[in-house]
Design a protein around this nucleic acid. Structure first.
Lengths: 198, 198
DNA sequence: CGAGTTTTGAACCTATCGATCCATAACTTT
DNA sequence: AAAGTTATGGATCGATAGGTTCAAAACTCG
């Protein structure tokens, strides 16, 4: 039919996602995206329409990857509810330790985007809200399970506990971006668990 | 000696701070700053040298105002240690409720700046680190006091508890920016306190 | 091989970015 | 009132932003 692509769209999307993750939306120029992906302007605009649209796809990919992995942990039937949440927090610590640039954690793209764009981009805000709702629902289900299996002893409302865990994970991300090391993040995670098992 | 200023430098700084707080550093143009402050370009550049320098002064002002107010709460000798931290969390909830634009919380300028700039601006990162250190020290002192006055019963290391509280406050800020309402933030604050009083 | 289709790279577009320049206004001091 | 100094508004700067155009390239299919 026609001339085929010389590049892998998914790999390009990954590179763009990483760039937005490192630098943020505004600070990432289309030139940065060309260099990160190895594509020319035409190819980027031909494939992704605009910087805005490319960002949206990159964010969707990030959300899909990350939330899927995290919800899988919360579904691990081999573990008690509390241990599933411990595993989730450990995954967050690992993520903050792995994804770094310039000696600092990159944080989490959804947290970063909440800060940078949620207030002035309704579509992005909607994506983030749906993701948060999904994660809160999963957390809440695990917490209710933990109430039954005895691993979560807090008498607080399960929804409140879920929102607390979600918020505290965001706080761990901010701490990582602020320079906190692995041991610090691990100690925070332990205290988070204390609130659920009091 | 010479022609006097037609404007109040502190008021202009406040307006600039608010703009950076609402829109972030990159998304704030010098034109935005002119409109927000009511000054002309010349006056802004004559007074503040550059957008970068103006931001630094705005951030310093924010840090000074906010951290001073928060540390004052932690020093209130009329309250138990736990109640001081409760008061701090209540102040955070109030702040998230008060400072809004477009139906959303503005979050916290230091958190926002950690996300947007800490990785690529060493001077800004330094300011944020010093502020964090100051707040952690105050939190730690209050937690150690709480151990003595009996209001904080967690056996965890005081430093770890302090970092937990600091991180969780950041998480509350993110939650607020993500759309959480006052009741949600209050419930998160209650669970944070559970971790300290278990 | 040739017609048809899409991709690609380079040149190019307009708008806006942060920042500077300069003539004039507005003040103090002598 | 004159000299000296700073503030101000408007014009302007080069650089870069995101995005478009277009001709050549590279493929498939008949």
């Amino acid at each position: 039919m026609a001339r085929p692509r010389m590049f892998d769209e998914e790999r390009a999307l990954d590179a763009a996602m990483r760039t937005f993750w490192e630098k943020g939306y505004e600070a990432t120029s289309t030139q940065d995206l060309c260099e990160a992906t190895g594509l020319g302007r035409s190819s980027i605009y031909n494939t992704f329409r605009s910087k805005r649209d490319l960002f949206e796809r990159a964010l969707a990919r990030y959300i899909d990857t990350m939330t899927t992995a995290q919800l899988a942990l919360l579904d691990d039937a081999r573990l008690s509810a509390a241990d599933r949440i411990r595993a989730l927090l450990a995954m967050v610590v690992d993520g903050e330790t792995e994804h770094r640039a310039g000696g600092r954690s990159l944080g989490c793209l959804t947290v970063n985007t909440t800060v940078e764009l949620a207030a002035r981009d309704a579509r992005t805000a909607g994506m983030l809200e749906r993701d948060t709702a999904r994660r809160l629902a999963a957390l809440r289900a695990v917490i209710e399970l933990g109430r039954r299996d005895g691993s979560i002893t807090s008498a607080r409302d399960a929804g409140a506990l879920a929102r607390f865990v979600n918020a505290s994970i965001g706080g761990m991300r901010i701490s990582g971006q602020g320079g906190a090391d692995r041991a610090t993040l691990e100690s925070i995670a332990e205290v988070i668990m204390d609130a659920l098992t009091r």
